[in-house]
């Protein structure tokens, strides 16, 4: 039987204000793109779904931004404390369809975190394209550099890397390389742009969706997104979907 895990916090980093990078002990193995569902304690009731950034034998890493009450409470835990974690949950990235060419990962803001484990799992010729609002919000560039052939950075204000959108860089990368797969996570407008480029150039594309969740296992049907005109469950049928199946 599956069960929730009581996981000890092994390490916490706070690379920039409001972003926490946590490593916990974890007994199960996870696929890139899956998520965990964490009890935050205090007067929160529901768990909070957080994407898996990386994992290995006996450990799991997740990175999150303090957004509301649950993540605020989560940020108050210290190394050595334990967390009640359900997971790994959901359907992760499918890289069996990546083809023989260059895979590209495209992340926007906190959407970059689930892409790290994926980038490590893809071949060394991966190109990553990461977008941030401004230079001060750039995180994990070194790690993406290490597992990518090229790591492109875009900032909205041009304070670092290319000024503008990740989708502008994506189109250039697609034009200049034999790109056979694109994987993306970030704000919906950004992923909409990614999907359009993938369709324009006929490239296999997967997107990781976000939604307010309840149970996280597919029982309560609250976290839906649209697929071919129907509501599908983000937690169970996703969070990663083939872009062609999503109505964005």
């Amino acid at each position: 039987m599956k069960k929730s895990h009581i996981c000890k916090i092994l390490n916490i980093n706070n690379p920039i204000e409001g972003i926490y990078d946590v490593i916990v002990s974890f007994p199960a193995s996870a696929m890139p793109g899956q998520f965990i569902h964490i009890l935050c304690g205090g007067d929160t009731l529901l768990r909070r779904p957080i994407s898996i950034c990386d994992s290995g034998d006996g450990w799991l890493r997740f990175v999150y931004q303090v957004r509301g009450k649950g993540t605020k409470l989560l940020s108050q835990y210290k190394e050595g404390d334990s967390l009640d974690i359900l997971g790994p949950l959901g359907v992760g990235f499918n890289f069996s369809k990546k083809g023989d060419g260059v895979p590209v990962v495209v992340g926007g803001g906190i959407g970059i975190f689930p892409l790290l484990k994926l980038s490590k799992a893809l071949s060394g010729k991966t190109q990553s394209i990461l977008g941030f609002r401004t230079k001060d919000l750039i995180v994990m560039k070194d790690e993406f550099d290490a597992c990518s052939d090229v790591c492109h950075i875009a900032t909205d204000d041009g304070s670092y890397g290319t000024k503008g959108f990740v989708t502008d860089i994506l189109e250039e990368v697609v034009k200049n390389n034999n790109v056979t797969s694109i994987y993306s996570c970030g704000p919906v407008p950004m992923m909409k742009g990614v999907k359009q480029i993938a369709e324009k150039y006929n490239i296999y594309c997967q997107l990781s969706m976000e939604q307010r969740m309840g149970c996280g296992i597919g029982a309560c049907a609250v976290c839906t997104c649209r697929s071919h005109g129907e509501n599908v469950k983000v937690c169970q049928q996703g969070p990663v979907f083939d872009a062609q199946d999503l109505d964005l």
Binding site: T44, L45, L46, K69, G70, Q211, R212, M213, G214, C220, A221, V222, C223, T224, C225, N231
Partner: peptide, 8 residues
């Protein structure tokens, strides 16, 4: 119904 369908 459309999402979001849940709020704490």
């Amino acid at each position: 119904n459309p999402s979001p369908r849940i709020a704490e």
